[in-house]
């Protein structure tokens, strides 16, 4: 293990939209990173949609599952702010509550959009409205 890794581990900023350090440590180099980010944009959009649907149907379980998945995948690419919001949503819905979840989901939508914007500007990855074949 190198010293650099130790210093970054467990000490990231909760408000960070996209943590470059995390991205840079992903395995597989640039090509893989672009592939991952594309996948993220697609899956995160789907997961947000599921949360919305869950909210409308008062289905806390559906919201919980979607938030849980988005929590880890956003953390994986260093989208700390989004991941933090998912943790909050997860915490409330785990207790079968719904109060205040809609606000958090709206926040999450914004955070996700910010992530998308940053990905598009920094990594020239276009948002794909339709899933790419093979994924």
């Amino acid at each position: 293990m190198s010293r650099g890794i130790e210093s970054t581990s467990e000490s990231f900023d909760d408000r960070m939209i996209l943590d470059e350090k995390v991205l840079n440590f992903l395995p597989g180099g640039k090509l893989m990173m672009q592939k991952v980010l594309k996948m993220f944009l697609k899956s995160s959009a789907e997961l947000m949609a599921r949360m919305d649907a869950g909210l409308q149907q008062n289905d806390t379980d559906q919201v919980l599952r979607a938030a849980h998945t988005l929590k880890s995948s956003s953390a994986m690419i260093g989208a700390h702010a989004l991941s933090k919001l998912c943790v909050d949503i997860e915490t409330i819905t785990f207790k079968k509550e719904i109060l205040g979840v809609d606000c958090l989901v709206q926040e999450a939508h914004k955070a996700r959009q910010q992530v998308e914007n940053e990905i598009c500007s920094k990594y020239q990855t276009k948002m794909l409205s339709q899933p790419t074949e093979g994924i």
Binding site: G28, M32, V36, S43
Partner: peptide, 15 residues
């Protein structure tokens, strides 16, 4: 179940 996680792990393990 997450293809993204799988993809990253596979890559890291190949490395």
């Amino acid at each position: 179940d997450d293809p993204m996680v799988r993809m990253l792990m596979v890559e890291a393990l190949h490395e």
